[in-house]
Write a protein that binds this DNA or RNA. Sequence first.
RNA 1: GCGCCCGUAGCUCAGCUGGAUAGAGCGACGGACUUCUAAUCCGUAGGUCGCAGGUUCGAGCCCUGCCGGGCGUACCA
Length: 675
Amino acid sequence: MNEVSESIQDYSSAIRSTVWDALLALGGHDLEGPSTLNFGPTPNPQMGDLALPCFVFRGKLAALDDKARNNPAAIAARLAAQIQPNAWLEAVGSAGPYLNLTYRLSSLAQVVVREAIERGAAFGGAQVEPQHVVIEFSAPNTNKPQHLGHVRNNVLGESVSRCLAHWGHRVTRVNLVNDRGIHICKSMLAYQLWGDGCSPESLGQKGDHLVGDFYVMFEKRFREEYDLWQQSADGDAAFANWSQTPEGRKAVEGYEKWRATKDVEPAVDAKKKPGRAPQEPRAQFVSGYRDEYFNAVSPLGTQARALLVGWEANEPSIRALWSQLNGWVLEGFNQTYARLGVRFDKVYYESQTYTLGKELVQQGLERGVFYKDETGAVFFDTESIGLPGTKVVQRSDGTSVYITQDLGTALMRHAELGYERMIYVVANEQDYHFKVLFGVLGALEKELEGRFEHLSYGMVTLPRGMGKMKSREGTAVDADELLDEMKQLARKEIEAKLVLEHYTGIDEVEIGRRAEAIGQAALKYYLLDVSPASTMVFDPEKSLDFAGRTGAYCLYAYARTRSLLRKSGWDDSQRDFAALAMLRTEEEKRVVKELMAFHEAVRWAGESRDPSRIAEYLFNLCKSFAFIFTDKKGHPIISCDDPTLRKARIQLVEALGVVLAIGLDLLGIETLEEM
RNA sequence: GCGCCCGUAGCUCAGCUGGAUAGAGCGACGGACUUCUAAUCCGUAGGUCGCAGGUUCGAGCCCUGCCGGGCGUACCA
């Protein structure tokens, strides 16, 4: 057989143009071009490998007679008759309105396996014109350790970075550490009041956890203080006051109205639900007044705010305390990042960037992008970007708000890094913020319009009945503890297998290394297997498994490929791509087709910034192979009698290993040679 | 009130620009280790895709309304 193509790309386009030629031969001159042909998979392998729905060609093929021209089934049949099997197509047929094509495995296997082995780690990559993409993720606050939600962010940001880089872009990862503000002052105050000079060393505790404990302590004491105040005469007075405000009046009336009607004639309009019961007015007041109490009344709040003022005024003792606690936290974060394999090219600190954007506001005012009202506050008219209302970009006292520094940071980064795209990996609760931010940036700098992107991901929630994850209340799933637990579970799994012959000679260090890798693989796969936009439920009891569609499953498949290659005594001198023409079973074909699909998986993951495409792909790839490595009778590999077929299968396994290694790396998962 | 997102099997999730009989894992049930690692494989059961209309040759996917849930809607971050 002649060499039909050099690459998977060539192979696919050869098929595409074969079909295109047939369409032209049947008079299809109005059609848009070969690249628009919408091939899809067939429902089952017996029908072929590629299907082309022919509805879209109705009335488009001039060479067909009147009866056939508008009949998709007739069109499919005529197309099938027009296309002859060739070096890359084994069979051409039609079923109803679909044209079905069957790859010739003997040629396809050679092209695909050769490309995977020869390109190695570069396989499936470099598909696009490179752009400089800056991606910001993690962005932690330094008042508490990271929890599961941060882990989703970290793992997602890291994986998207890897996917974009493999796809072909130049990626710069940045972090923006929120190391200043009232939240860190709360931890500082609690440490001052109740810390007794303790340190990570004296307590033998990671610094981020230590500081987080003081944050929780602050919130607890503050809550107690607030509850007491609510029960006091002052609290009653404030409530009475509030009840006279329009807001308070509304709350009281709403509640009274609900009380008056809730027991009366429920049957009259049974279909209409009574609606959710409004909160009792005092409860509404208690939850609504908390911030005002913190700012205006609370002794603890007053002290915390004094720390913030002192910090901004560069008060040496306050700065020293701040540096000390932040240093502890950052040290803790860095350990967690290192453990997760997350890295940044550049780390920004809000303590250094929070003043950015003020001069931008000034410029915007001069250019009429912003306007000032009589109180002195500076506004942006969000109607101009299709959002109702306005957005304050500078307070009436001249201080900046959250969005101000984001504006400044975006432009400063552009000057510094010169990105073509800027992606922010931030949870979807900030969707609105980013809409506004990008709108303002576009209005401010026309040339940057359209370069910004919010990779909005869903929250991680706990199962019904387990409440919400709140670090403030200490109910969050802690990142470090989670990693330890995963490792522990993996270790148990390994220890249960130590009796097997295969494990003789494995030492304690090696067990630990594997347990860590397997635990992390399970966690990362679990988080990345769902698309970023989805809110996901995390059940600590059941979520992290090593069986079925998991990270461990993929690691296991990879370890099997490595084991097969080791035991086969294979080396490069035995290389023989022509042998691949020997592959002929349905299962072998399935593996080859999956290998071929890697390009598309990388493209999808890159284009949509969605690593779940890779996770799904890897599972399908492993599954396509799992039957073969179990089927020792039907698919012997090392023990295959036919030497040429043996070579073919070993090389198929080799190619599989190459792709698995790349794919797992894209998810940030470290592979194991043995499991 | 308004805005955005979501509602698919008991549970957790896929379902690409609308295309053939809606998929996977877990869980349940039944099988497969003298033979390349059983963290595996093979099989069975399980769904009026929230409800009602509409567009289309064709709708889980698009449009409208309704129901249910989440998140926003700060001169907080």
